[in-house]
């Protein structure tokens, strides 16, 4: 078994994408956290999202 450098060996620093209450709980526990202002991509149109992703892959 190879030795790993992993998350378990470091203090956690979090990017929170979604529920704000998770950020609030982490802040209360004095954990560094950035709350993202996430919104559905391409106005939430899943077909358009898939199209954009395939264009990005080609590029």
């Amino acid at each position: 078994m190879k030795p790993y450098q992993s998350l378990l060996q470091k203090p956690i620093r979090v990017i929170n994408i979604g529920l704000e209450s998770f950020s609030e709980d982490l802040r209360k526990a004095e954990i560094p956290v950035i709350q993202m202002d996430w919104r559905p991509p391409a106005g939430g149109d899943l077909r358009l999202v898939a199209l954009l992703d395939s264009l990005a892959e080609e590029a």
């Binding site: 620093r13 994408i17 950035i34 709350q35």
Partner: peptide, 30 residues
């Protein structure tokens, strides 16, 4: 509140964990 992951990492460059709680249909992509 950054809108993009790159901007978020600009503010917390040594972030090591992302917590995601967004609608399932977009979760895999993010």
């Amino acid at each position: 509140r950054p809108r993009t992951l790159d901007a978020a990492l600009g503010f917390l460059p040594d972030a090591n964990l992302a917590a995601l709680s967004i609608p399932g249909e977009f979760a895999a992509r993010e």
